[in-house]
Design a protein around this nucleic acid. Structure first.
Lengths: 217, 217
DNA sequence: TCGGTGCATCTTGTATGCATCACGTGTCCA
DNA sequence: TGGACACGTGATGCATACAAGATGCACCGA
């Protein structure tokens, strides 16, 4: 054991850089270099380079040959694209679930109720971190129920971009978490009833609210 | 100009390896190494390494630390996942299109008719290559009409995997191209009529036929 | 003053060397 | 006979060195 926590240098470079992009300490539009990151993390450029390639594939960086790496800024059109893709993937999972045997639906609904309990508790404690994590868990649970690895992976990348979008979110008052929770509950209610159309409507309401919170329209 | 066609070594490694995976000369289950490919292409391991990482992200390779890279075999469940995702993405574009202004729909339909002409002509010449290219063009055109870069990129990766699936395709008789063409025509007809439900049905028929051709069921 | 040119500098692209790790094999001992 | 273990082999992981492109700026000439 090297004592570094078992993480490879590549993995450290990837996670650290990604975290800094997602939490906003590397703002969109910034031009960063392999050398900078390598120095910061006390490693050579090689693993950093591989991390950059991966981040480019995820759409968080844009690499310019011999120039550097641009932290991609979230544009309104990207927000729209992300939300459209999310609606498609999550909606598909919900539809599939409503057409599935009662037992499957009940199992997922039960899992979602657990997540909602956690989220409610986080809200009462005003623990933003835990609330966001539960939010993530909620949506992932829905998509996972679709049992399609390709769509699940796409969704993971969509959630990452969503995180960044939320940073510049306009609406950040205390009423928003409550609204989110209510929207989640409505989705689960429709799902429990096996009403696919209603579930899709509720999902759309939820994502529309997200768009308004992020874009202001 | 360096005379190498303007392609970086990384790009050559990526394209060459990908091509060899897609055309079957590197069959699924094979274990390849960075060194082999580097020697073959007369370059160092570094660019090959980056190509491997990219291919892993696309789901064509699976990297085993300190062991090598496994060319992933297409499993029946992957076929199902790809086709499900294709139906979702293409169907979404079709739905969107049917809800769009008449002019937009007509423009896409016109583009599709052009592609179909090419495909018909390829069929009459029995030019498999051209037929497959037109097939690709047909579906890409549909997805492009959705104007969502995220979904379009996902779709491109789906098509790549589809290519490999077709290699092991069971049904390869002369009747299959004709059937494909007819299915395409049916989709365009529904689209021209602006009938979203019908278009979705026709799409499903087409993809079901693909599944049967690949999996035999 | 203005536009072109050459250079300093910064960055990535690629090659190479070494350390490390995983696995197969053969040996030794109970 | 069978299992543990040391070791050889081959692969990757990472560091480092060097090559080459891109940029910005000082400098120069008209």
């Amino acid at each position: 054991m090297t004592g570094n926590g078992g993480l490879s240098a590549k993995e450290r470079a990837y996670r650290d850089t990604k975290a800094r992009i997602l939490d906003g300490s590397l703002p969109g539009g910034d031009l960063i270099t392999e050398g900078q990151v390598a120095d910061t993390l006390a490693m050579s450029r090689t693993p950093v380079r591989e991390a950059f390639l991966r981040l480019e594939a995820e759409g968080l960086l844009r690499l310019f040959p011999k120039r550097g790496a641009l932290v991609v800024a979230v544009s309104p059109s990207e927000v729209e694209a992300v939300l459209e893709a999310r609606e498609l993937v999550e909606g598909h999972a919900l539809t599939k679930l409503c057409a599935a045997p009662e037992d499957d639906r009940a199992a997922v609904a039960a899992a979602l109720h657990v997540v909602l309990d956690v989220q409610r508790e986080a809200l009462s404690r005003e623990d933003e971190q835990a609330f966001a994590e539960a939010d993530r868990r909620f949506h992932i649970t829905i998509v996972e129920s679709g049992r399609n690895p390709i769509l699940l992976e796409l969704y993971a990348s969509l959630r990452d971009r969503q995180l960044r979008m939320n940073l510049g979110s306009l609406e950040r008052g205390p009423s928003r978490p409550r609204a989110i929770l209510a929207q989640h509950e409505a989705i689960v209610a429709a799902l429990t009833a096996g009403d696919a159309d209603e579930a899709l409507v509720r999902l759309r309401v939820h994502l529309d609210a997200t768009r308004v919170a992020v874009l202001g329209r």
